[in-house]
Design a protein around this nucleic acid. Structure first.
Length: 365
RNA sequence: UGGGGUAUCGCCAAGCGGUAAGGCACGGGACUUUGACUCCCGCAUUCGUAGGUUCAAAUCCUGCUACCCCAG
């Protein structure tokens, strides 16, 4: 059973499985019911595309609705995080809770032996354990979004396009006459789509205006609510001309005082840190690569598409302490940090706080 | 009320008689399955206002208006 979004990747994934002799069923997930900023319900077009593609590759297709699950298990957390002044990544949760849980269960219940998606990642079974590997196309690798999965989920999953480049995928779509071969890559929150993010959030979060202040407390503007900004952000502050003429960036959120702390210049020291503490640590493997308290050298990503950063990490219970070799810019609470050993995605955690000095747990390790 | 100064894009700011730099903000696009960052493009026929001098003024002169500083 292939989860089909109406995009090129999942369409080609279904096509490839069909060509490989699988008994393929395409399933479209509708998890969000709302028109986009232009008053268009993109899900309607996407569902049509799925139907058209399935007709061409000659497989049955169905649609399922996980709106309730999405609302309860993903969106609720998303809003709760924003209310706390953090910046969540709903898509990592969406993969764990919806695509690789609700959808996976759905597929298994209907008797499917495997589920597949159009993610640019690869999996491989070594010594009886299934690993998550980066997609072959380094520019499109999506393992960052799948770090919350567990072995058990990966065992049931196939990633037919993971070994290819985006260009190859499009070429295959083209050769096989799939109408979505030139469809633009989707962006924005999964299932919700590209939005004017601030306007979108305003539908759910109350605006609590307050001051924008410099690090030394000088008021330089007003914000519309801390939730509407994230660390390292430049656009949308609306302050210009004052000071030395350089751009202003968000360097901190003072939730207690409802103050957005801003600084001039993209290189504000306040934005750069080497150490971080993260929670909700997940190892993809059932057996962690190292025991708690043992330092592990690996590479990490603090955001999607960030080049690999060398670091030493230390797991302790469900927390992860990170010491990056280089200073990291705008590591943001609520965001995910994902760990890699070469091509293998080990897992990850959610950033809680950053620091310029090692945390107690990291000292002398 | 005297004396002095300043008035150029939302903000900061070049310009000094030859036909409006730049930065920030903002808008659009690219990039992107989170949020951000980044990159590219756009952004004053007009220089507080009314006259005057000149072939030609934001740039010189005069009146008016506003703000600032000093004196009261």
């Amino acid at each position: 059973m292939v989860g089909m979004s109406g995009g090129v990747d999942s369409s080609v994934a279904a096509l490839l499985l069909k060509q490989q002799g699988y008994d393929v069923v395409g399933v479209f997930m509708k998890n969000w019911d709302e028109k986009d900023d232009n008053g268009v319900c993109t899900a309607t077009q996407d569902w049509q595309d799925v139907q058209d593609v399935c007709a061409i590759i000659d497989i049955p297709c169905y649609a399922v609705n996980f709106e309730k699950e999405y609302q309860d298990r993903v969106f609720a957390d998303f809003l709760a995080e924003y209310r706390r002044g953090r910046t969540p990544n709903p898509d990592v949760l969406c993969n764990r809770e919806i695509k690789f849980k609700a959808f996976l269960h759905f597929a298994m219940q209907l008797g499917a032996s495997k589920m597949a998606t159009g993610h640019f990642v690869q999996s491989e079974t070594r010594n009886g354990h299934t690993l998550l590997l980066r997609g072959a196309d380094g520019r499109k690798d999506q393992s960052y979004f799948l770090y919350m999965l567990k072995e058990a989920q990966l065992e049931k999953a196939l990633f037919p396009v993971g070994a290819m480049t985006k260009a190859q995928v499009r070429a295959i779509a083209e050769e096989n006459g799939l109408p979505v071969s030139t469809k633009k890559d989707s962006t924005g929150v999964c299932f919700i789509g590209e939005r004017n993010f601030r306007a979108f959030l305003q539908n759910y979060l109350p605006a609590k205006p307050g001051d924008m202040r410099t690090e030394d407390g000088r008021k330089v503007g007003e914000h519309i609510g801390l939730a509407y900004y994230t660390l390292g952000q430049r656009k949308g502050l609306g302050i210009g001309g004052c000071g030395d003429g350089r751009s202003w960036f968000v360097v901190a959120k003072d939730v207690a005082h409802n103050v957005l702390v801003v600084s001039q210049g993209e290189d504000s020291p306040r934005l750069f840190t080497r150490y971080a503490r993260a929670s909700q640590l997940t190892w993809i493997a059932d057996a962690p690569p190292v025991p708690d308290g043992t330092p592990l050298r690996c590479t990490v990503k603090y955001r999607y598409r960030q080049p690999d950063q060398s670091a030493t990490v230390l797991a302790w219970k469900d927390e992860l302490y990170l010491a990056a070799d280089e200073q990291q810019r705008a590591v943001t609470p609520g965001q995910s940090v994902v760990l890699y050993a070469g091509e293998v995605c080990l897992g990850g955690a959610i950033v809680e706080e950053t620091a310029n000095e090692p945390f107690a747990q990291q000292k002398n390790r």
